[in-house]
Design a protein around this nucleic acid. Structure first.
Length: 908
RNA sequence: GGACCCUUAGCUCAGUUGGUUAGAGCGUUUCCUUGACAUGGAAAAGGUCGCUGGUUCGAGUCCAGUAGGGUCCACCA
């Protein structure tokens, strides 16, 4: 067996094992008869993406779930992939083109798409390579891309299916238009931002009553040339006589009517509203109700057109706003302006204000909305933390049809063909469903020369909503069989961020319910059973991490410096369920330090004695002689079972950081700080050595299994170095038993931890702690040969005596002797009064102060204890165990108080 | 306007159905290179749990209110 080095060097270990895992096919997900399946689909990162801390957290958690399930005996699969990310990717390639002073139109659709594919091949998807570095145990052979031929065919097939079901239609409506990307966006892709602007007060002169004006307020004076009316509330007495009359539009001067509409809030401003149906959603609806014309004054790219009048035409919209204000001022129509903050919708991707714009688009009436609500309400799909269910349900309650078409080239081109010569914009709903005029299918028409295909592509989310289905081969029967659809669907757990509940989670649920297994029970059609929402990672100041702020650390750099395991352990341990995470690099360092601690504890084991048969837990147990157990042996096994049970529970509750911390504290405090230290004395004695080593092996073996999901590389390396593989290749072939199974196994061996004996270890720990403190206060902290005198009753002395070697070593004492009385600095311990031999060097004043301080604390505690016990209500109402505990504590405190008083008196 | 979250040690955070003296990591102070580990060990200082009231024998924990910070949804020009 190779010797374990002094410090852990992750780099080579990580590289070696990841290659070995890939070579052995350890991550391959295969249906296995007689075993339960466990499946996760990775939220596909954008093909343009690079690894961020968010990805690290998200994918580490998925890996933890999959690796744990694997150790628990499930047949697991974790399916990775990439999202083609329509706008994001197209933007990247267009930016490259712009450097060559070209636009996509210079290339044409086909050449441009070739260009995008070339980019994808050359630079896309680096993130998947980066995830390998992190240790992600994905089944890479199953990697999917949303533009793969099979995937595309599924997407188009679903479009045709939903079209045939009447759920998809084409309609001219107000949409969120992005003047930078030149496409429609869904409501979810619009971010409302408060913007400091100006509220302009403009007066419109009444045509038949010169000198009389109606004043309106607007933030967008450049749209005045598109005004087709003014509107007032029908019950507003101020304007009662004006409804039906005409006013002069102050820019591109013409007569427009005054209409009455309940959409107007009479309490806001002057109570009159300008109506610009082409450029405002509410105005459009008012226009429809009153049969008003639509006058577009803005082009798709956000510039003014000729209808805006000679003063504004061809200007960019924000410049036009200023110009319009100047023109109004010059004509006297502008009667005031004030600073004003209002909320403006911004394009999520391009970060420019969107324009409401009337265009033809494809829409989806969401399927299975009610069922999607029901499965979450009933708990058939469980959200963790649960509160996100409320957000989800609220969105579904108010759901609007989904605009699924995008005026882009990169994406799934909508599988609709119009018969040549047919004017698509004059098609009625009935025409749309007439196969003579419109063809809809994934394969396309058999006589393509007679048809013209729709130009638009689908919203990216209209492909990724099929992810859990299509990654498992759906809808192709042969591919489903190969991918194990029957076995792995529904998938087990989805791990994602709450920011895409609407974009992705809700839509996947609806898609799964509608498409997966029509006619079967709900629980067969769900895409997943649990959804775990991670927090958002913020910087130390609490800001979101973003490229533009440059406040996001590079995960690859962190892995270089702390190891992938250190990064994984660190990030998980600071990510409590449901809260945003404030990133602090020292926590990653802590992860690295923990790995080093684990490494060195195993090194100590290796140096302490030859390896016995470590091939299986039973082999290790057969080396244990339970008859030779002392309290520490009982205690460490008891703590091991406790930690195992805690981790079991935390996993059931999706509390990964709590699980990591439980393991951290068990391993560092219970095992390293105590058991390893007491082992040093036990290993000196031949009769206890073999059992002690076997217990170490048992604990380390189980600890490695428990930790493997969090820190896979180092646990694999140590598993191999210490020979726990029993001739098998990998820790992944090991079995992680749950706590009750472990307890049973120990019981069979006659090594069931004795709780009472384990409890004496707690007393020994505090005894040692007090002894060390006593030394530190008397300037002996560094000494290994202090002398102690203990005044103890027989029962307690027996405990000390039978653990003497360990206790003396731990206390740094040459000896602890028993006496009837003693002098010198002292402390009242659970085993009696312990005096430190200072050979008269101690300062009585310091000693007196210390004892007095302790006595005061004890007395305060006694007072509150006493008050409680004197309270009749407490005595009669508190449960028995609480009462019992309080009384026992009172007795202990009183004894200690008496002893402290005695010691103080002895000092004079 | 509606919904949700947070406020506990200098910092970042745990604290599970209410129950003995509220914890961790980092930071700080003092000490220690003893044969697993200085990426380490030992000891110590440090908190009226945002505030006010209520329920209870008992509240960091439950309820009501309030202040501050944050997120999402909907938006009136």
């Amino acid at each position: 067996m190779p010797e374990i080095t002094k410090s852990y060097e992750p780099r080579e270990v990580e590289r070696k094992w990841y290659a070995a895992w890939l070579a052995s096919g350890a991550f391959a997900g295969r249906p296995a008869r007689g075993r339960q399946g466990y499946s996760i689909v990775m939220p596909p990162p954008n093909v343009t993406g690079v690894l961020t801390m968010g990805h690290v957290l998200n994918n580490t958690i998925q890996d933890i779930l999959v690796r744990r399930a694997r150790l628990e005996g499930y047949s697991t699969v974790w399916i990775p992939g990439l999202d083609h990310a329509g706008i994001a990717t197209q933007t990247v390639v267009e930016r490259e083109l712009r450097k060559q002073k070209k636009t996509r139109h210079d290339l044409g659709r086909e050449a441009f798409l070739e260009r995008v594919w070339a980019w994808r091949k050359e630079k896309g998807g680096v993130i998947l390579e980066q995830l390998r570095r992190l240790g992600a145990s994905c089944d890479w052979d199953r990697t999917q891309f949303t533009m793969d031929p099979e995937y595309s065919s599924a997407v188009l097939g679903v479009f045709a299916d939903l079209f045939n079901k009447g759920r998809i239609y084409r309609g001219k409506r107000m949409v969120n238009w992005c003047p930078a990307s030149l496409t429609a966006l869904s409501d979810e892709e619009v971010i409302m931002k408060p913007v400091n602007g100006t509220l302009y007060k403009v007066r419109y002169e009444v045509v038949d009553s010169p000198g009389q004006f109606i004043q309106v307020a607007t933030t967008r004076p450049e749209t005045i040339p598109g005004d087709v009316a003014l509107a007032v509330h029908p019950d507003d007495p101020r304007y009662a006589g004006l409804v039906g009359r005409k006013v002069w539009r102050p820019l591109v001067r013409t007569e427009i009517p005054v209409v009455a509409d309940k959409a107007v809030d009479p309490a806001f401003g002057s109570g009159a509203l300008k109506i610009t149906p082409a450029h405002d959603k509410v105005d459009y609806e008012v226009g429809l109700r009153h049969g008003l014309p639509v006058v577009e004054v803005l082009e798709a790219d956000g510039t003014m057109n000729l209808l805006a009048g000679p003063g504004l035409a061809r200007m960019e919209r924000f410049a036009a706003r200023k110009k319009a204000a100047e023109l109004l001022k010059a004509s006297g129509a502008l009667v005031g302006e004030e600073a004003y903050q209002n909320n403006v919708g911004y394009s999520e991707r391009a970060d420019v204000p969107i324009e409401p714009r009337l265009t033809w688009q494809w829409w989806l009436r969401y399927p299975k909305v009610e069922e999607a609500k029901a499965v979450v309400q009933s708990g058939q799909i469980r959200f963790h933390p649960e509160r996100w269910a409320k957000v989800y349900l609220h969105w579904l309650e108010n759901i609007q049809d989904w605009c699924i078409s995008r005026q882009l080239w990169w994406g799934h081109r909508i599988p609709v063909w119009y018969r040549k010569g047919v004017d698509r914009d004059s098609l009625t709903e009935a025409d749309l469903r007439d196969p003579q005029k419109v063809h809809v299918s994934a394969a396309g028409p058999s006589d393509p020369e007679d048809w013209v295909q729709e130009d638009d592509v689908l919203d990216t989310w209209a492909s990724s909503w099929l992810w859990p289905l299509t990654t498992l081969g759906w809808p192709d029967a042969a591919r489903m069989k190969e991918a194990g659809f029957d076995y792995f669907y529904p998938t087990s757990t989805l791990v994602t961020g709450p920011d895409i509940i609407f974009f992705w989670v809700a839509r996947m649920i609806m898609a799964g319910l509608e498409l997966s297994r029509p006619g079967e029970g709900v629980d067969r059609r769900l895409p997943f059973r649990d959804v775990f929402f991670t927090g958002i990672i913020r910087d130390a100041q609490g800001r979101k991490m973003s490229k533009s702020l440059g406040n996001s650390p590079d995960p690859l750099d962190l892995m270089d410096r702390y190891g992938a395991d250190g990064l994984r352990f660190g990030i998980v341990s600071i990510a409590p369920q449901g809260q945003d995470i404030r990133f602090q690099e020292d926590r990653i360092e802590q992860g690295k330090n923990f790995c080093n601690k684990l490494w060195n504890a195993c090194r100590f084991r290796q140096m302490s004695g030859p390896a016995g048969d470590n091939g299986s837990p039973h082999a290790i147990m057969s080396r244990i002689d339970a008859a030779k157990f002392d309290a520490d042996d009982h205690a460490i096994l008891d703590r091991l079972l406790f930690a195992t049970r805690e981790v079991d529970r935390y996993f059931a509750q999706f509390e990964f950081s709590a699980a990591a911390q439980a393991l951290y504290s068990f391993f560092w405090n219970d095992f390293c700080d105590w058991y390893v230290e007491v082992s040093k004395a036990k290993l000196q004695a031949e009769e206890t050595k073999a059992t002690c080593l076997a217990i170490q092996d048992l604990v380390l073996r189980q600890t490695l299994l428990l930790l493997h999901p969090f820190i896979p590389f180092i646990t694999e390396e140590l598993w191999s170095l210490l020979g726990y593989d029993g001739g098998r290749a990998s820790i992944m072939d090991g079995t992680l038993d749950n706590a009750s199974r472990c307890a049973t196994d120990l019981g069979i061996l006659g090594a069931k931890p004795d709780q009472a004996l384990a409890a004496t270890v707690e007393r020994m720990k505090s005894f040692i702690s007090q002894a060390r403190a006593l030394k530190a206060e008397n300037g002996q902290a560094g000494r290994r040969d202090s002398g102690f005198v203990l005044i103890a009753p027989d029962r307690d002395w027996q405990v000390v005596e039978s653990n003497m070697a360990k206790l003396a070593r731990m206390a740094g004492a040459s000896q602890i002797v028993r006496a009837e009385k003693a002098a010198g600095p002292a402390v009242v311990t659970a085993f009696g009064t312990l005096h430190l031999d200072t050979s008269g060097t101690a300062d009585p004043a310091t000693e007196r102060a210390r004892l007095a301080k302790e006595l005061e604390a004890i007395s305060r505690h006694i007072a509150s204890s006493k008050a409680r016990l004197a309270n009749e209500a407490f005595v009669s109402k508190a449960p028995a165990h609480v009462l019992e505990g309080a009384r026992r504590q009172m007795a202990e405190l009183s004894a200690k108080q008496a002893e402290l008083t005695r010691l103080l008196a002895g000092l004079g």
